[in-house]
Amino acid sequence: MASPPSAVARSRAIPYLFILPALLVYGAFSLYPLVRAAQFSLFEWKGFGASTFVGLQNYLDLAGDADFRAAILNALVLIVFYAVIPLVVGLALAAILRRGQVRGMGFFRTVIFLPQVIALVVVAVAWRQIYSPNGLLNDALAAVGLESLTRGWLGDPATALASVGFIGTWVQMGLVMLLLLSGMSRIPQELFEAARLDGAGAVREFFAITLPSVRGEITVALVLTIIAALKTFDLVYMTTSGGPGNATTVPSYEVYFRAFDLREVGSASAVAIVLTIIIFAINVGVTRIGERES
């Protein structure tokens, strides 16, 4: 006859009972769709009717697909606008605000975080009006005598991607600055006072104390903003729809375009899986670099 489980065994099992519902929800809404997308990527299917098993052919086709390569390159460019520029500017501004002890910091943090809480569809519509030929940006350039620079910013292949990227910079700046300000607020004031007694200036103080102290926040900010850059869809869809040509197409928009416009569900699923792998690989690399340097 089996003996009843001991009290220790029961106590060890209790935490898993609380985790199990979360695992079930995560599996149902994250893992299962991912597995289904991987399954669809092995078939040629229009989204209805019969499907044909093609194995890895959809992935092989992507290797020679110029539109897909352009989408990947555009996404990498957007990383500069979504992650690198907000991080560099955010570090500088956060350090200035931290050193200057600006009054009303709580109100300022709320204001700079506002782009994060506004729906991106609303943001896209507003910036599309700003970038229009008769929009605020061209009016401002004409008012200061730079009328030669006016153009249809989202309709020009030379400026469309940078214009969309700048919207991403504006959106992500508040999040990055808030993370960095939060990290800097935890630095003991005694470290800064000791550095000033040793004759350290603002620049030396930044690189010796501030920057090493916020490496964790920098890593988090990079992970969040890189993910946002690689999976951006709504901004592109609402502003340019991937155009002109393929100047602003990105992998997430390629998934939508192939699945719903071209009716190539297998190819769209392959793009989604490749995008997932790229996001995972880049963010694992960023996290490991941050952990190694901390």
Rank of each mutant, 00 (worst) to 15 (best):
M1F: 12
M1H: 09
V8D: 13
R10Q: 10
S11T: 07
R12N: 13
A13D: 08
I14W: 12
P15Q: 08
P15I: 05
Y16W: 13
I19N: 11
A22K: 08
L23H: 14
L24W: 07
A37I: 15
F40S: 03
F40G: 00
F40N: 11
L42R: 09
L42H: 11
F43I: 05
E44G: 04
K46P: 15
K46D: 15
G47D: 15
G49D: 15
S51F: 11
Q57G: 09
N58Y: 11
L60W: 10
D61K: 15
L62A: 13
A66C: 05
I72Q: 13
L73V: 12
A75Q: 03
Y82N: 14
A83C: 13
I85E: 05
I85R: 08
L87I: 10
V89K: 08
V89T: 06
G90S: 01
L91F: 08
L91V: 02
L93P: 03
L93M: 11
R99S: 15
G100P: 10
V102Y: 13
R103G: 10
G104A: 13
M105S: 06
G106A: 15
V111N: 12
V111R: 09
L114S: 11
P115G: 07
Q116R: 11
V122S: 10
A124F: 09
W127I: 00
W127K: 03
R128F: 10
S132K: 02
P133T: 03
P133R: 12
A142P: 10
A142T: 09
T150S: 12
T150W: 05
R151I: 04
W153D: 00
W153H: 01
A158G: 14
T159N: 02
A160D: 00
L161E: 01
A162M: 02
S163I: 00
F166A: 10
V171Q: 01
G174T: 11
G174D: 07
M177R: 13
L179H: 06
L181S: 09
G183D: 06
M184Y: 00
S185Q: 11
E190I: 13
L191Y: 15
A195G: 10
D198R: 07
G199Q: 13
A200D: 06
G201A: 15
A202I: 05
A202T: 14
V203E: 05
F206D: 01
F207K: 08
A208G: 06
T210Y: 06
P212M: 02
R215N: 03
G216C: 04
E217A: 11
I218V: 08
L222E: 12
L224I: 14
L224D: 01
A228R: 00
L230D: 05
L230A: 05
K231R: 14
F233I: 03
D234Y: 01
T239C: 04
G242K: 00
G243L: 00
G243K: 01
P244T: 06
P244M: 11
G245Q: 03
G245H: 02
N246G: 02
A247D: 00
T249Y: 01
V250I: 01
S252A: 08
S252T: 12
E254S: 07
V255W: 07
E264W: 05
E264S: 10
V265M: 09
G266R: 06
S267V: 04
A268C: 07
S269P: 02
A272V: 05
I273R: 05
T276C: 13
I278S: 08
I279P: 08
N283C: 13
G285P: 03
R288S: 08
G290A: 08
R292E: 05
R292D: 02
E293M: 03
